[in-house]
Design a protein around this nucleic acid. Structure first.
Lengths: 212, 212
DNA sequence: CAATAATCATGACAAATGTCACCTTTTTTC
DNA sequence: GAAAAAAGGTGACATTTGTCATGATTATTG
């Protein structure tokens, strides 16, 4: 099985490579750091399956997957993420991608890859638990465990890039006040105190206030 | 070889376990998430070697190592870190620990462990390059690539925990104004703009201002 | 159709943050 | 021993941030 690994964290992608290649059935044909890499490396290497992070700088894994599937509808893509966000799950499912795993379950990656290789869908345990309610609610409120909206999610990613409210407002074509309001409600929903904790949460997946 | 793995990031520690146990010579006897765990688990399991992250919540790997070595001078400890900080290298060397690796070089961990097990010191490539200049300057300016002082480093770790200036000042027994001054100089040294970028830098090792 | 949710906006206000200038006391280093 | 660096501090100031109340518009859903 020839695998393409995409993750913007070099630590994660290199450790994935090591873990995967410990299995004789698996060969990591290339490693990329972003959505652009994913598209290019898929074209040039034609791997059997792509193992890709959802959240990455600039182009998200979902966006990259859309483009890859547009060029090859049979592409098999397995997503990884720290941020257990329902919105992404639905998006990934809609893409017709081969499944969705959480990063937390690192040791289940190889069996999941093999299952996906056979054309079967794979979901992490947390996902399976949520699936019924997700399907029942269908499109409706597919906006994450924390009830975050589309725009709020976008805002978070910019906070996690270290941008100021003003900068975010310019990028998102909003007033600075709106950005402030968005962040205020995000913080309330996530039970965080300030943007720094939000950035930490984004990357670490933990809420500092709860642990302290 | 019986190994104890300590890392506050569950993703890292679980993937380390997977990587290490792929080798028939290695057995991971326990996993811990912080310095306290390290001390307790070392006592109860008496592993041949400890593989430990340097930067962790509350107690750093260095502090934990000090305590472990105090109780067992023959303890073998291999450090991991993302933050390639000279200050830590010197501290680790001074401890008489068995070496120092950077997280970046994930695939070199097993050979490094085996080398350390034999009682030999191990250093990552980046360290070897720096070693001469470090030794030449001896104690002098062992304060990191960015010229950060001891207290500044401490302050950074608290910012990365999502604490406010006031909270940091209470923990460090300083006035809030001093904490603000520290952070101000840290930001200047690291060419960052605010504490959120600092937290991002701490975890990602990149400076948002430079990349944007 | 009515209710709800999402999106976007203002203005006002308090609190937190970051900067600056300036100062003292120890340690370290040359 | 003088100079420099580290550690700690104060007060003032501008800016940023986060909160709140309140309101408008547009989709969406029951």
């Amino acid at each position: 099985m020839r695998v393409l690994v995409i993750d913007d964290d070099a630590l994660v992608s290199s450790s994935l490579k090591t873990i995967l290649e410990a299995d004789p059935d698996i060969q990591v044909v290339a490693i990329g750091n972003n959505g652009f890499d994913a598209i290019e490396l898929y074209k040039s290497h034609r791997p059997d399956i792509i193992l890709m992070d959802i959240r990455m700088d600039r182009m998200t894994g979902i966006e990259a997957a859309e483009k890859i599937i547009a060029s090859d509808p049979d592409a098999k893509i397995l997503f990884l993420t720290t941020f257990s966000d329902d919105e992404y799950i639905i998006k990934a499912l809609r893409l017709g991608s081969k499944g969705y795993i959480l990063k937390q379950r690192f040791d289940s990656i190889i069996p999941s890859l093999k299952t996906a290789y056979l054309g079967q869908n794979v979901y992490g345990e947390e996902i399976i638990g949520k699936l019924p309610s997700l399907l029942k609610e269908d499109e409706k409120a597919g906006l994450g465990n924390y009830g975050l909206t589309e725009r709020e999610l976008e805002t978070i990613s910019h906070v996690a890039e270290g941008l100021s409210n003003k900068e975010i407002s310019e990028i998102m074509y909003l007033s600075e006040g709106t950005v402030r309001n968005y962040i205020s409600t995000i913080l309330e929903k996530l039970e965080l105190r300030d943007r720094t904790q939000l950035a930490i949460f984004y990357y670490k997946g933990i809420t500092p206030t709860k642990s302290v």
